[in-house]
């Protein structure tokens, strides 16, 4: 009886996966260059969701328009965080950076709790219930926008990395830190730029996610584990990999949810991940990264 739901489930999985991909894009960039697992990623997503929410409720700014404001703002925040908080604690020990980002996550989450309380908030934008009829299912407009938006931002990031001097410098640092320094690249600046760009991508993801989701101080955790998984699955540091892996995981989750039930279906993502890592540890696109 579930056969008729297969196509809509796949479509929905792709829409969900696009959001996973977008959150993972920032994470994979940061991992690829700084070699750190950023535990604060989910918290930054939460912060961006609140920012978009307040822009809408207090300023009447549409979340999609808010991207124009929030991406630069979060870029700056990411840059400053890396420069002033993360870099000074590095001391050449990557495990310290891990804990610093964990500490940041604790601070950000609880600051949000203190400032905005744990009330669930969401926006009821005018297109919240507008859908496109695909015959087999209705697709909310907001999800379609999220899907194509994620693809667009993925392409944008790829173009940035491939065609600009900044992109070249970032790639040089990722590949050979000391070599890049020798040829005059300001490595610390590049690190902070990378963290800033990664954070800006989170802001974009938040703006695309908000119309179909809700905000609480804990909301980041709903996405952060999947984002980690997406990064590794795609091959650490690979953008096409993260994009593809995000979409794949969205579909895997939707299908497992359909056939195993949403509760047991959660393991789908992790089982795919484990098998993948064991049998192709470089990730889907790892060799190219």
């Amino acid at each position: 009886m579930l056969g008729g739901l297969l196509v809509p489930a796949v479509i929905n999985g792709l829409a969900l996966g696009a959001i996973y991909a977008l959150t993972a894009l920032g994470l994979t960039l940061i991992y690829g260059v700084l070699h750190i697992i950023n535990f604060a990623h989910g918290s930054l997503l939460m912060l961006a969701l609140y920012a978009a929410l307040f822009l809408y409720t207090l300023g009447g700014v549409d979340p999609y328009v808010a991207i124009l404001v929030l991406m630069p703002a979060f870029f700056a925040a990411g840059y400053v965080l890396q420069r002033l908080v993360i870099q000074p604690a590095w001391h050449g020990r990557d495990e310290n950076v891990l804990l610093v980002t964990l500490g940041l996550a604790i601070v950000i989450d609880n600051l949000a709790l203190w400032l905005w309380t744990s009330t669930t908030r969401s926006i009821d934008s005018r297109y919240a219930f507008e859908v496109v009829d695909l015959g087999v299912a209705f697709i909310p407009i907001a999800k379609l926008v999220g899907f194509f938006g994620a693809l667009a931002f993925g392409a944008l990031l790829w173009a940035l990395m491939t065609f600009t001097d900044l992109g070249k410098a970032i790639r040089a640092v990722a590949r050979e830190r000391e070599g890049a320094r020798l040829v005059g690249v300001r490595v610390e600046h590049i690190y902070a730029m990378t963290f800033g760009i990664g954070t800006a991508m989170v802001a974009a993801a938040a703006c695309l996610l908000l119309p179909t989701f809700y905000v609480t101080p804990q909301v980041g955790y709903a996405f952060v584990l999947v984002a980690f998984t997406t990064v590794v699955l795609g091959g650490m540091g690979s953008f096409p990999g993260a994009l593809f892996a995000g979409l794949l995981l969205g579909v895997v989750e939707a299908l497992c949810g359909l056939y195993l039930g949403e509760s047991l279906g959660q393991i789908g993502i992790f089982v795919v991940f484990i098998l993948m890592v064991l049998f192709r540890p470089t990730g889907l696109f790892g060799a190219r990264a």
Partner: peptide
């Protein structure tokens, strides 16, 4: 009987099964 975890990120599957 359909169960789901908390947090559950998406309810489309559940909604579609109900509709069917």
């Amino acid at each position: 009987t359909l169960s789901h975890p908390s947090p559950q990120r998406d309810f489309t599957n559940i909604a579609l099964q109900i509709r069917q």
